[in-house]
Simulated scan of single mutants.
Amino acid sequence: MRNRSMLPLLLTALVVLALVAFGGAGLMGGQGEGTTPGAASGASTAPGGPGTPAPGKSAAPHRGANPSSLPEIRESALPVEGRRVLALIRAGGPYQFSQDDQVFGNFERVLPARDRGYYREYTVRTPGEPDRGARRIVAGNGGEKYYTGDHYATFKYIAEGS
């Protein structure tokens, strides 16, 4: 009888392990990471997916067309702290804050809609602020980067190399 009482515990442990191993894809009613709604089966937008560099892992600045309808800001017009963060992103770190290089959820829906995991965020220090402040750079897997000076209320596409 003792073995039967352990069965529910073992099943629960197996479910938890499976969720951890597979990242909980499909939980919370969302789409699994790595697929774009309406995309053909097998298409991937997962970080580091085929042909898609992980954000910040490309040494070259993104010089493509603005993939959003957001206004642009020239790289040279960013605050000096923002230009430093861009250099760190291109180098792959190291970053000052543990929250940097973490998934940005785009919950405000200001940036173009993408699957969870597509965007990552980085802190741009604000001189005189005792904490991380409101300024961030958000990088997409396609290499595009956006700047916000007001903690995600508004964004500008960063025209890198200008």
Rank of each mutant, 00 (worst) to 15 (best):
M1L: 04
R2Q: 06
R2P: 03
N3K: 02
N3F: 02
R4Q: 06
S5V: 12
S5K: 10
M6Q: 05
L7D: 07
P8F: 09
P8E: 08
L9I: 15
L9F: 13
L10G: 03
A13V: 03
V15Y: 07
L17H: 05
L17N: 13
L17E: 04
A18H: 05
G23L: 01
L27V: 12
L27M: 09
M28G: 10
M28A: 12
G29E: 03
G29A: 04
G30C: 04
Q31N: 13
Q31I: 10
G32L: 14
E33T: 14
E33V: 13
T35L: 11
T35W: 13
T36W: 14
T36C: 12
P37C: 09
P37K: 14
P37T: 15
G38P: 14
G38M: 15
A39Q: 15
S41K: 15
S41T: 14
G42P: 11
G42W: 14
G42L: 13
G42I: 13
A43Q: 09
A43M: 09
S44C: 14
S44M: 11
G49I: 15
G51K: 14
S58P: 03
A60Q: 12
H62P: 04
G64H: 06
G64F: 07
N66H: 04
S68M: 08
S69H: 02
S69F: 02
P71A: 07
P71Q: 05
E72V: 09
E75C: 00
P79M: 01
P79H: 00
V80R: 02
E81K: 01
G82E: 00
G82C: 01
V85I: 11
L86G: 05
L86Y: 06
A87Q: 11
A87N: 11
A87V: 03
L88I: 03
R90F: 01
A91V: 01
A91E: 04
G93R: 04
G93N: 08
G93E: 05
Q96W: 04
F97D: 13
S98Q: 11
Q102P: 00
V103A: 14
V103S: 06
F104L: 12
F104N: 09
G105A: 12
N106D: 12
N106F: 12
N106Y: 08
N106C: 11
F107R: 13
E108T: 05
R109G: 03
P112L: 08
A113R: 11
R116L: 13
G117N: 09
Y118L: 07
Y118P: 00
R120I: 04
E121T: 13
Y122I: 12
T123C: 07
V124M: 07
R125G: 03
T126F: 01
T126P: 01
P127H: 01
P127S: 03
P127C: 04
P130A: 14
D131W: 07
A134M: 04
A134R: 09
R136V: 07
R136P: 06
I137P: 08
I137C: 10
V138A: 06
N141K: 07
N141Q: 15
N141G: 15
G142V: 07
G143S: 07
G143I: 08
G143M: 11
E144K: 12
K145H: 05
Y146R: 09
Y146H: 05
Y147E: 01
G149D: 01
D150T: 06
D150S: 00
H151N: 09
H151R: 06
A153P: 00
Y157D: 06
I158R: 08
A159E: 15
A159Y: 10
G161H: 10
G161W: 11
